[in-house]
């Protein structure tokens, strides 16, 4: 490898004394002292969560309080760290939402495994799982950090439904376009 010798300009006396450089450095830091702080005083101030932020995955209910998840297990399938575990179950025939037929019997997300990739939200055909704005999860044991269904619904709350698929289905069953 060829060595290239870089010609360096000899330092002037002022440069060698180092003092002008110190002064310019001091000027920079002094300027900085009068700028407002760039930090966020976290527990008092909360950061603005931008739309599309991927926080803790949660399950949501529709405005009628029906659980949207039908336990299709696509999220369990797509989950890269295998954090999601679903036991599917059947909705009993006499339930109000019996026309949906299927709902999770148990839905677990292991928050110790979750990598917040958002693939579950992306894959969900029922728009039932959302990575919302919760970014801080704490717990005192491993078991506590395996979020069960009730906890996931408590975190998720209710989100507006954009297409009312199942309501439409029910109304079609009750009134519209019947056979005979």
């Amino acid at each position: 490898m060829a060595t290239k010798v870089v010609e360096r300009k000899p330092l002037s006396l002022a440069e060698r004394s180092y003092l002008p450089q110190i002064v310019s450095g001091l000027r920079v830091t002094m300027k900085n002292m009068f700028k407002p702080p760039v930090t966020l005083e976290y527990p008092d101030e909360r950061p603005d969560i931008p739309p599309g932020y991927r926080g803790v995955p949660t399950l949501v209910k529709d405005p009628d309080g029906r659980e949207k998840c039908v336990s299709c297990q696509l999220c369990e399938f797509v989950c890269p760290p295998k954090a999601i575990r679903i036991i599917p179950g059947e909705i009993p025939e006499d339930a109000e939402t019996a026309h949906v037929e299927k709902a999770p019997e148990e839905f677990e997300i292991n928050m110790l495994r979750c990598i917040y990739c958002g693939l579950c939200q992306e894959v969900c055909p029922e728009e039932a799982i959302f990575l919302q704005d919760i970014f801080s999860v704490t717990g005192t044991s491993r078991e506590e950090l395996v979020f069960k269904k009730d906890k996931l619904y408590a975190l998720g709350g209710t989100l507006p439904d954009s297409h009312f698929k199942w309501e439409k289905k029910k109304s079609a069953e009750l009134t519209g376009n019947p056979h005979h």
Binding site: T29, N32, M33, K35, P37, V38, T39, E41
Partner: peptide, 13 residues
């Protein structure tokens, strides 16, 4: 405080 201000922080408060 000086350290904090130079670094854009509020310092002990």
């Amino acid at each position: 405080k000086v350290a904090a201000r130079v670094q854009g922080r509020p310092g002990p408060n």
